[in-house]
Design a protein around this nucleic acid. Structure first.
Length: 195
DNA sequence: GGTAGGATGGGCT
DNA sequence: GCCCATCCTACCC
C-alpha cells in the first residue's frame, strides 16, 4: 500500500467552497485500507445556490453543512446510494464539496469485492455512489471529522500539477447552468462523459 | 459505441 | 405525494 502525504488540516477547508473544490483535485481520500485520488468534485454553495441541500435551511439532515469545516456530510439518495461531501467555510456558513469520483490507489481487491459490477479498475469509484461503496463509506460517517480518524483526506505521495476542466454540475435541475463541477482533464475515472 | 427504464426509500411540502 | 447531487441492465446500433 502506498504511503501518502500529511492529512489536510482544518484550515484547508475553512475558506470559500469553490476554492476548496478545485484544491481537492489530486488529494487522496483514505478510509481504512482503501484509498483513491480525487479526480472530480462539485461545489454546493450557500446564498442563492438552490441546488444545495442547505438552501432550505437547517434541518436534521443539513445541520452538518452549517457546522465546522473539515467534517464529512454523507447523505442517502435515490433509495440506494450514499454520497460523500466535505464541509467548507467557517462554522455557521453553509458550503460543501461533493466528491464525485476517485482514481483507486490502494485496497483495489477490497474495492473489487464491494463493487462486483465494475468491469475495469478505473470504474471502481467513477461516480459519487460508486466511490462510497468502494471505500465502505456510509451514513455512519456523517459528521465525521476528516482531519483525524479512519476517514481522512491526505496530500498525495507525489504531488504534481493537475489540468483542471470546468463544467455545469451533474444530475441537478436548479442552478443547472453554474460552472461548479471540476475534474482532472483526461482522467479515466471521471464519471460520465469526459470532455 | 449509445440510451431508456426501473430499482428503492428518505426528506420535505 | 413528489422529488430526488445515482447506478445497472437490457437492448440497440
Amino acid at each position: 500500500m502506498p504511503r501518502f502525504g500529511p492529512i489536510l488540516r482544518r484550515s484547508f477547508y475553512n475558506r470559500p467552497t469553490i476554492e476548496v473544490a478545485r484544491a481537492l483535485l489530486g488529494k487522496v481520500v483514505v478510509h481504512g485500507p482503501a484509498a483513491g485520488i480525487i479526480v472530480e468534485t462539485e461545489a454546493y454553495l450557500g446564498g442563492d445556490d438552490l441546488a444545495a441541500h442547505s438552501a432550505r435551511g437547517i434541518t436534521d439532515r443539513t445541520r452538518v453543512i452549517f457546522g465546522p469545516p473539515g467534517h464529512a456530510y454523507v447523505y442517502f439518495v435515490y433509495g440506494m446510494y450514499e454520497c460523500l461531501n466535505l464541509v467548507c467555510e467557517p462554522e455557521g456558513q453553509p458550503g460543501c464539496v461533493l466528491i464525485r469520483a476517485l482514481e483507486p490507489v490502494a485496497g483495489i481487491e477490497i474495492m473489487r469485492r464491494r463493487r462486483p459490477a465494475a468491469r475495469k479498475p478505473e470504474d471502481l469509484a467513477s461516480g459519487p455512489g460508486k466511490l462510497t461503496l468502494a471505500l465502505g463509506i456510509t451514513r455512519l460517517q456523517n459528521d465525521a471529522d476528516v482531519t483525524r480518524g479512519s476517514l481522512v483526506v491526505r496530500e498525495p505521495a507525489e504531488p504534481h500539477a493537475v489540468d483542471i476542466a470546468v463544467s455545469p454540475r451533474i444530475g441537478i435541475t436548479q442552478c443547472a447552468d453554474l460552472p461548479l463541477r471540476f475534474f482532472i482533464r483526461g482522467n479515466r475515472s471521471v464519471s460520465g462523459k469526459r470532455i
